[in-house]
Design a protein around this nucleic acid. Structure first.
Lengths: 278, 278
DNA sequence: ACGGTTTTGGAAGATTTATTCTATTTTTGC
DNA sequence: GCAAAAATAGAATAAATCTTCCAAAACCGT
């Protein structure tokens, strides 16, 4: 490889910059260096805590190849690249770990300890969300809801909080929205008309009412967007698009962090889609 | 220092275990080793990405002192201790960074990008929560709610999702609970009686209805536990205990991740307090 | 204040880890 | 299919990092 001196002259100064460059040159990299790029793409977080030997082994190349890869990225060597990741790491979690471990060890019970556990579970849930998220599905869901006349929301028990927050957001963005099954049985299913869409939220153990509403609406050919904590639950049959948000439990309890994050993203996307359509 | 051979024989096998041992021996450590312990307590997250030279400099001691410190903890040396942290690091963020950066760099808009931003904001909110959390206040709040006859909840607009999830949890744990201001104005403030307690949630811009309910209840000498996104808002006057959960915004929007996590912790703590009181 | 014990600082030694070099293989252009 | 260029593997070298050692200092009980 001939290095285009002018172009690669300076090393990336942040991880984002690095990834940008990585994507830029990934296609024109020779075989072994390509392996390095591929491996890095999927294991970029390992750089901060690994040696070249580890990483090159992971990528299935010789240490020297990985070395050349670092230089192709514009670094003087591996160490300079690693320094970037270590710096970012130090910044990203100021002293959360400290706080967490203090709360965790001091006693091992009490509300503070609980909060620490829920917070840690929340972190993990968000990680899972980002790993599993199918942004194509999310985009499709946003599209369906954006083109609906009225957005109908349904979700009971633990799912109700999700639905109510989504209702709040949609209303704030002036999207016509109705939350179903709140007070008694007043809201008739017939309020959901062709041209509308239904957003149904249900987690294990599924609430029969939500499922049957989703099923009957789907039968009438109206789009149903589902949100659940599993791919293959009963919602998957009725739903045109099924979004999944797994949560990490703390004992018998959970905070629906991932679901709420996903639902909020969806609501905002719907609002933006509508706006640009006007 | 004489090492009590039998006791310190084996090295900690997890970070929690390490911290436990650290707290156990912290008091009986000589000066320099004590400095190491103190520094580690506050910068424990640095171990994964630093050298002994870095850490010993941070603690203000010689590298050899830090070395002895590691051994006092039961490790063969610094490397063994560091391996622990690196292993935990690898687990804790599987490949979230990868996912995030992919979504972040690919395009820079669309629902997937939104979700990535909200997820990142969620992480930060949880970090702030753990840093700012006053576990004494949280315990006090749990105590007040646990000793109340009926727990009354109020929160409108964006706060309603928090309140409804908390209501769900408390109900599930058989704590007598009422959510106020849902359907019309039917629920009279007079339903809140001496011996009860009110949990009021309100974020900027504050909802007048929530505030006035909280104020009138507080006037009658009934405990009010507040949850807000700021320390010095109008809720601080009425509230016996005020909990704070700051959230990181994404543009004009936010996911109430921290507030929901805090509220859930509180609800579970209340449930546990009640149970043990029965 | 003294002798024994513990702790410390600094430097020397051992080990791991990063980096470079070169012969060999693979690819590329013609 | 051949020559030139590029890329690679593996070993050799250089650098950094960890670890041990020991003389000097601080501490402690008497």
């Amino acid at each position: 490889m001939v290095e285009p001196a002018a172009l690669e002259a300076k090393a990336p100064e942040s991880v984002s910059e690095l990834i940008e460059r990585l994507d830029g040159i990934a296609d024109m990299l020779p075989k072994r260096l390509g392996q390095c790029a591929e491996f890095l793409r999927h294991n970029i977080h390992l750089v901060a805590v690994s040696t070249v030997a580890d990483l090159s082994a992971g990528a299935g190349v010789q240490p020297s190849a990985f070395m050349r890869f670092c230089q192709a990225l514009g670094f003087s060597g591996f160490s300079q690249m690693q320094a970037l990741f270590r710096a970012e790491y130090r910044e990203f979690r100021p002293d959360y770990a400290e706080r967490l471990s203090q709360l965790r060890t001091r006693g091992g019970e009490g509300p503070g300890w609980l909060a620490a556990n829920f917070a840690e579970a929340g972190h993990k849930s968000l990680v899972f969300l980002m790993n599993d998220l199918d942004s194509g599905k999310l985009a499709k869901a946003a599209e369906l809801l954006a083109s609906a006349g009225t957005v109908h929301l349904v979700g009971l028990r633990r799912a109700f909080a999700i639905v109510s927050y989504m209702g709040y957001l949609l209303d704030k963005m002036q999207v016509p929205t109705v939350i179903h099954r709140t007070s008694a049985q007043i809201e008739s299913d017939h309020a959901i008309r062709p041209g509308d869409a239904l957003f149904a939220v249900s987690f294990k153990p599924f609430s029969q009412e939500t499922l049957s509403l989703a099923a009957s609406v789907a039968d009438r050919g109206i789009p149903v967007i589902g949100l659940s904590d599993t791919e293959d639950g009963p919602l998957s049959e009725a739903a045109t698009v099924l979004l999944v948000a797994r949560e990490v439990d703390v004992g018998a309890f959970r905070v629906p962090t991932a679901a709420l994050t996903l639902a909020t993203s969806l609501a905002v996307a719907v609002g933006q889609n509508r706006e640009s359509a006007d």
